[in-house]
């Protein structure tokens, strides 16, 4: 089979994902930003609860955890690779930029999906059982893809210092938490907040999680899935294009 064939490139993307999982999942910043950060934010908000129901909080925790986790790994892989001087070796291999991005994204998606078990498990312990589990699984997968592609888009600046990208990504991620209906329902946001909420991919996954856990939603379900799909395609296309442009400056 030709090395350019899509199946051959898919196998190589899987090899990259396997490598990422082996190397990067246990890294400190990934665990801190991906797992502990949303958990502490949730505890802080739960402690100051203004009468919001536990299913509301658990669906918010789920959205926040998947968001933080999927965007924790993907932005820092390439700066780490550049810093460790492994990126040049990787780029010299017979793989396309799409393959490289797909591999990093796949690892990040798996991490996002896997971590969703933690908030769902907390919910189950508290007696909160999803009403639409299959839709929720589909939402988690799509959201992980979308957030991973966002993470890869955030890593396009040509820096070899992972903390620079972490800083940039935190600058975007924290405001998104507050305008996406995670802690405050979108309907209760001021008009400007509601306009911004429409621009955030996290809003649509939070809405899917609310529907699947509580049975209530702000936007129609097809709109939520369509929005996440559009964001995923847009972020991925931009990430591939920008990484191809900036990768030589990292080496």
């Amino acid at each position: 089979m030709s090395p350019e064939h899509i199946i051959e490139q898919a196998k190589r993307a899987f090899a990259i994902a396997k490598k990422d999982i082996r190397i990067y999942y246990a890294k400190g910043p990934v665990v801190i930003f991906g797992l502990f950060m949303p958990l502490f934010l949730f505890l802080a908000f739960a402690a100051g609860n203004r009468g919001l129901s536990m299913p509301f909080l658990i669906s918010g925790l789920l959205a926040m955890t998947v968001f933080f986790t999927a965007t924790a790994v993907s932005p820092v892989i390439q700066p780490w690779e550049a810093q460790a001087r492994t990126l040049e070796r990787l780029i010299a291999c017979p793989i396309t930029m799409k393959t490289l991005i797909a591999g990093d994204m796949f690892a990040s998606v798996l991490f996002g999906i896997g971590i969703a078990i933690v908030p769902l498990g907390i919910g189950l312990i508290l007696g909160i059982i999803p009403i639409h589990p299959l839709l929720l699984i589909a939402g988690i997968i799509l959201a992980s893809i979308c957030f991973s592609s966002l993470g890869l888009l955030l890593s396009t600046p040509a820096t070899n210092v992972p903390s620079n990208i972490m800083m940039l990504s935190s600058l975007l991620k924290f405001p998104l938490i507050f305008i996406s209906g995670v802690f405050i329902p979108v309907e209760q946001l001021p008009f400007v907040g509601q306009v911004l909420a429409v621009c955030s991919p996290l809003t649509y996954f939070t809405d899917i999680a609310r529907y699947c856990i509580m049975g209530t939603n702000t936007f129609p379900l097809p709109v939520n899935f369509a929005a996440l799909t559009v964001f995923s395609v847009l972020f991925t296309a931009l990430a591939v294009r920008l990484h191809a442009r900036t990768v030589s400056r990292r080496i």
Binding site: S2, P3, E4, K19, I23, A84, R85, T86, E88, R89, A92, C93, P94, I95, T96
Partner: peptide
């Protein structure tokens, strides 16, 4: 891709993982 498939590369500053 076809060109790179025929080559082995030992870059100056590269590392193994």
């Amino acid at each position: 891709i076809r060109a790179k498939q025929r080559c082995g590369v030992v870059p100056e500053t590269a590392n193994a993982y």
